[in-house]
Amino acid sequence: MKRGKGRKLITYAAVAVFWLALWQIAAMAAGSELLLPSPVSTAKTLWELMKTGRFWLSLGSTLLRVAAGFTLGVIAGTLLGAVTASVPFADALLSPLRSIIKATPVTSFIVLLLLYVSPVRTPVAVSLLMVTPIAWANVSKGVTGTDPQLLEMAKVFRFSRMRTLKSVYVPSVLPHFLAAVSTGFGFAWKSCVAAEVIALSRNSIGKALYESKLYLETAELFAWTAAIILISMALEALLVRGIGRLANDKR
């Protein structure tokens, strides 16, 4: 077991070294920090940024917006998924809405929302709109995919509605819900930052990215992007692991 873990770590490290080396070679070939900063200068810039209050304020504000949009999107999507999977009329009525949200480019939403919502709230609303259809589709798939034989069993053994929900539906929907959480979080994060870039939301990673581009601070642009990727990956892993553990405890 330990040996397997060690081998895995070595593989990860080797893969990381490979890509960093490739990046370094490309940066050296470009020959200009303005065009393509090296991984070392990106890391240095990130380290310098981390020493400033602006970095943590922007990070904290963006995280709050992502968390708000993601949570609201998951709640809305779960409710809509459960309702449309159980009531055919609701499905007929609401499914065009899901198709429209899914087909609309994120930039259209951002520009449209800026007409009605403040630049600070636009990223929250955009994240919500990106996450809702993902949670909706997954939860709906989980509910309709619930084993009909188990539902018959619940009926024959006179399970209450609450017991049927807790013992049959929730465990059946859970894998789909976790998939939605994992995919949705990435979408929420990316769309929130995109909205911040366009809306120039106060104290945000998006605004910091935009300003780095405006003042041709390419290394800073790369440092912010690296921070976004690292935090997104870490939070997604934590979230999925946390929900998985919670679900196992409840069983």
Binding site: Q149, E152, M153, V156, F157
Partner: peptide
């Protein structure tokens, strides 16, 4: 009833499947 298929809640233990009814 004992159904032809077991129709058990596979995410629960044997004990919880029995207690569920």
């Amino acid at each position: 009833v004992v159904f032809q298929e077991d129709r058990l809640l596979t995410w629960y233990s044997a004990r919880r499947n029995i207690a569920a009814v």
